[in-house]
Nucleic acid binder design. Structure first.
Lengths: 125, 125
DNA sequence: GTTGCTGCAAAAAGTTTGCAGGACG
DNA sequence: CGTCCTGCAAACTTTTTGCAGCAAC
């Protein structure tokens, strides 16, 4: 049903070797090194397909363009640096967020984003 | 510097009387009842101005279009119902999220979103 | 050899901007 | 009455779609 193409291979490889989540244009320019004639449409189609296969995950931070990362990192959340505008991973998530919801609300999932300054950006701006 | 216009008055009134955060098209159609010739551009410009004045706040939920709500509700977070796709307010936020960040990261703000089923949508789908 | 995937270009959706005229203070 | 704001249309940005040819199985 789903074919394994050079384009998808390249996109997954790019995300695997990325130090942080990437935007579609970033993915395109990096993957184009392996597949020169790669186009935007293919990137978007591949991202959608890979997401459906649960191979990658979308990272959406308010006010920022959508980014993507591999799904091989397990459950975690993100820290967004207001200085360098990079996304960092927050390793674990010890919590019972369900308790925050009002009674009778069934909590199935959650998303947490922290904002601040990463070690390199403290004291600036 | 900032003028008080009929358009902004109408937009704020719409958001004040809204039961949940609204998208720009929703704001436009509701505010147009008070200001018939209201256009999209004005809505976007007013939303930006009101946001700069800290009168309203943007609510961004991954996979959903941006929504806006009045800033008069104090610090809180949101619950997104996977059934009816409506946004609910989570009253308070008892937290020490700062502890989640890795050492040397300075946490200045945070965002939490819960996903699940609201009371009306449980048992469906 | 099929059939799904790709690349290109055009289209859609959402948001921003330029400009002439009108409303606010 | 000067200036900021508005409405309209056009421009932009980001993502999606149509279609002929190509590549995966």
């Amino acid at each position: 049903m789903e074919r394994i193409t050079q384009q998808k291979i390249a996109i997954v490889a790019v995300l695997e070797s990325a130090e942080s989540p990437l935007t579609p244009p970033e993915i395109l320019s990096r993957a184009a090194k392996a597949v020169p004639r790669l186009g935007v449409a293919t990137v978007y189609r591949a991202l959608r397909a890979l997401r459906k296969e649960r191979k990658i995950v979308i990272v959406e931070i308010p006010g920022e363009p959508p980014r993507y990362e591999t799904a091989t990192r397990g459950h975690h959340h993100h820290f967004f640096c207001n200085g360098c505008r990079k996304v960092f991973e927050i390793p674990d998530c010890a919590a019972k967020w369900a308790e925050l919801a009002p009674p009778n609300f069934q909590v199935l999932d959650h998303e947490i984003i922290l904002y601040g300054k990463c070690p390199n950006c403290q004291g600036e701006r």
